[in-house]
Design a protein around this nucleic acid. Structure first.
Lengths: 146, 146
DNA sequence: AGAATTTAAATAGCGTGCTATTTAAATGCA
DNA sequence: TGCATTTAAATAGCACGCTATTTAAATTCT
């Protein structure tokens, strides 16, 4: 593709990625309103529902986010009484994040979310699975490029 | 997929989309530093390089963004002397965005960007084209769902 | 043991992207 | 004509997500 054509918005994969991610976020905002969570907060809860008592860095590794993003986010989740943050006794530099009772309980209310997002996407599971695999490959390559 | 498994992070297309978009943004941040543009600012410039003298809404339609996002962004581009904003004479509610000489000139410096992003992605053009089409379909469906 | 280095998290400051609201201009309609 | 409605952009306020820096704890090295 010549440089002229490459600069056309409609030819840019990256714009498709950007705008589809925004569209996805809008769908989640609507669904997550009843849980009073933002999408990144929901991601943190997903991680903790899988494994509780992680450090800030461990959560960040899972989500590709750093403490500058996570610390204020975790403080908001703590203020909402979904989790608590406490310094590790073994290593005082680390902060351990622990779900509260209501944090664990929220999982049930979240169980319907994936199905409803699938509905909004109006795609088949196979189609989404293929897309997911392509995105994961691309992310891996982009992350090594930086 | 049962609700248990659907809540696992690794099974979520949406997380792949979210995190790949963040990874893409990081690649762009590095490349766009020499143009002193952010990625959304670069998108606005792409739109204006294709067609100059658009209103704020027209830019927003192209990028799926509204005036709450675009107004401050356009003010920054105006402060950087890449464009000017002026009220339409026909309809004083509208603001016409016009590239400056240096705004037009920046296009040349931007011409190498798509090629360099392609390099960072380490994907074939065909592969990216397929991914783009899937994303565009998904965005269209998500946008009608909201 | 003590100084230098590394590490984890927090903080400061900036630019989106959003919802809800406001302002001002244009349009519709009795 | 005059008032209500609609529209375009701007504004207020919030939550990310980032870079760069700071703080404090752990580790390394002599």
């Amino acid at each position: 593709m010549n440089p002229e054509r490459a600069l056309l918005l409609d030819n840019q994969l990256c714009f498709s990625l950007y705008s589809t991610a925004l569209a996805m976020n809008k769908v989640y905002r609507k669904l997550l309103r009843e849980l009073e969570l933002t999408y990144p907060q929901y991601l943190v809860m997903l991680v903790l529902w899988e494994q509780d008592r992680l450090t800030v860095s461990e959560i960040g590794e899972r989500l590709y986010l750093d403490s500058a993003t996570l610390t204020p986010l975790l403080k908001r989740l703590e203020a909402a009484q979904l989790l608590s943050r406490s310094r590790s006794a073994q290593d005082e530099r680390q902060v351990i994040v622990t779900l509260s009772e209501s944090g664990r309980a929220l999982r049930e209310k979240a169980e319907s979310i994936p199905q409803r997002v699938l509905g909004a996407s109006a795609c088949s599971v196979d189609e989404l699975q293929a897309l997911k695999e392509q995105l994961d490959r691309l992310r891996a390559r982009l992350n090594t490029a930086v």
